[in-house]
Design a protein around this nucleic acid. Structure first.
Lengths: 190, 190
DNA sequence: CATAACATATATCATCAGTTATATAACTAA
DNA sequence: TTAGTTATATAACTGATGATATATGTTATG
């Protein structure tokens, strides 16, 4: 029987994950990962046929992290919008390299990944609780707008183009969602 | 006296510029640029001490293109907001690699570049013509919000995360600016 | 123990990128 | 025409990276 693996797939992915967190995918190469693990490059190519495979697996872990992050942030039923938006932006700030990898760079990984778009429907339903006045279609349109706004902040934060504090972000988003909703409903009435 | 230069700085920058337009800065390397020009790598290193220098010069040209694009889009006094926003988004769509290089990737080039932030003040002033009801500070806050929204759309467009037609973009932005303004003013009144 | 089967380290190759050394060609002043 | 200067082509060097061949362990099982 063979000797036990000293460096398992998971270990290697974790090392790559940490590198991406600091430097993005650019920093992930065989020797760099090996150094992180304190081993040679062999365990890496033994566990993964190619570096691209490791990249993909690492991406999956990163995407899972994103999903976990969002799940934790969106527990509440009240103010689901605000909570989700804040989570999204917080992710962009705490894990800028992850955010950039997922949302700001089109790569092969995205195409092959499992980014299910089902969240949108759920979000719209949640919002329905807050915005009874609007039809489903209107809610959807409104949802898109809020999402765009949130994404805008998150991108600015991830690239450190602007530096917002937690409080500033909360105020900005809260105000904007309120105003957008008010403006949207108002627009209908006028 | 020396023979005339067959390949001038400008030619080389132009070649690099075209490559960035198609593939981003990743595609710009000495041999690739040389191939584009139909020459060896020598003219490149003769005109530029390092590839980084060529990168920077190319970035400058790209940034100038952006400024020119925005200037053309923002001639009108009426609806300055909408025009500027549409220009910004259109730039992101027509030159996604340029947009990404300028606004979605923090690099050494940005830090050393000359991105003057004076436009902000001007924009706020322009907007004052449309929004007489608001104080300067309020206009500024509103301006930031519209800018964030616009940036959000542009980022989505540049990465091709969403594919909007010209009409869709115009409607979306027009509606949103109107609603945001209405909501903002409404929020003050309530 | 001995061995099969696998894991790891080391050294190495191939490729690609930036850069440079050398030779050649072109241009101008004398 | 020649000498000096310099632009260009060719080829090479250097360093980084993906990948692999080989040798050396390591361990469960008979």
């Amino acid at each position: 029987m063979p000797p036990a693996r000293k460096f398992k797939k998971e270990d290697i992915i974790n090392a790559a994950y940490e590198i991406v967190k600091e430097e993005g995918f650019v920093g992930v190469n065989a020797r760099r990962v090996a150094k992180e693990l304190g081993c040679s490059v062999q365990p890496i190519f033994h566990n993964f046929a190619t570096m691209e495979e490791l990249h993909k697996e690492t991406y999956k872990k990163i995407y899972a992290k994103y999903q976990e992050h969002m799940k934790n942030g969106a527990k509440e039923e009240k103010k689901a919008y605000l909570k989700m938006g804040l989570s999204y932006i917080k992710f962009a700030r705490n894990y800028p390299e992850f955010f950039k990898a997922i949302f700001m760079q089109k790569t092969k990984m995205d195409a092959e990944s499992f980014v299910t778009a089902d969240t949108e429907e759920n979000d719209v339903i949640k919002v329905g609780q807050t915005m009874c006045k609007l039809s489903y279609e209107e809610q959807k349109k409104f949802h898109v707008k809020v999402w765009i706004f949130t994404h805008g902040i998150a991108c600015l934060v991830a690239t450190k183009t602007v530096v917002f504090s937690d409080e500033e972000i909360e105020v900005l988003l809260k105000e904007s969602v309120r105003e957008m909703l008010k403006g949207y409903v108002g627009g209908k009435e006028n």
